[in-house]
Simulated scan of single mutants.
Amino acid sequence: MKRAIIALGCILLASPVLAQSVGEKTGVNSMLGIAPTTTDFVKQVAISDMFEIESSKLAEQKGNVQEKSFAQQMVTDHTKTSTELKQLVSSGKVTAELPNALDSSYQSKLDKLKSASGTDFSSDYDSYQVSAHKDAVSLFERYAKGGDNAELKDWAGKTLPALQHHLDMAQELGKAPSVGQSSK
């Protein structure tokens, strides 16, 4: 297994174009600390924002008090980043195509949230938020350090602290005692 990972790493490092597109989809770039291409970065950010907004709209309806508060901030903040990204692309400062739908992975998570309720909803929503924000922090850190578009690199660096704050908040979901529960 170790040899396979080392061999894969060598192949991807030897072939930057392959590493950029295949690696981002498989998480290899994150493991190796490789910056995504502008195209991959824009696509991943747009899809992540769509998921954050849609899943958080569900949490505003189905979540507990803590999740509803968190969800309101996610809808506000990710709508803002989504708008900023669209402006960068439409202004011509960033050349990339914005996706208009979730990928299959995020769509299946959203579908699961739509059919869940109560503690099942909370458990899924909370874990999806932690996972999505870990991925986003990694993506933005890597692009801010090694991205190939100066405008987008600057935006990624400026947006990163808010995403790190979101991750911290997401990691606190479910840790607070429920109403009426004593904190022993």
Rank of each mutant, 00 (worst) to 15 (best):
S55T: 09
L8V: 15
K175F: 05
D77A: 06
Q164E: 15
Y143P: 01
L139P: 05
F140L: 15
T81Y: 13
N29K: 09
Y106F: 15
V137I: 10
Q181E: 15
K134T: 06
A4R: 05
E172F: 15
L18M: 05
S104W: 11
S91I: 05
M31P: 08
F140P: 03
D40Y: 06
K68T: 04
A35L: 15
K25A: 10
P99Y: 08
A144F: 03
A71Y: 07
K68L: 11
S56P: 04
Q171S: 11
D120P: 11
K93N: 09
L32D: 01
G33V: 11
N149T: 07
L32I: 00
T76D: 08
P177Y: 02
K184N: 13
D103C: 08
V130W: 01
L167Y: 04
E141S: 04
D124E: 11
Q66V: 10
L18K: 06
E172G: 15
D111H: 02
S138M: 06
Q61N: 00
D120K: 08
S105L: 11
G174F: 06
S21F: 14
E97V: 09
D40H: 02
W155D: 04
T26S: 10
A144T: 02
V75E: 03
S117V: 10
A170V: 06
I34D: 02
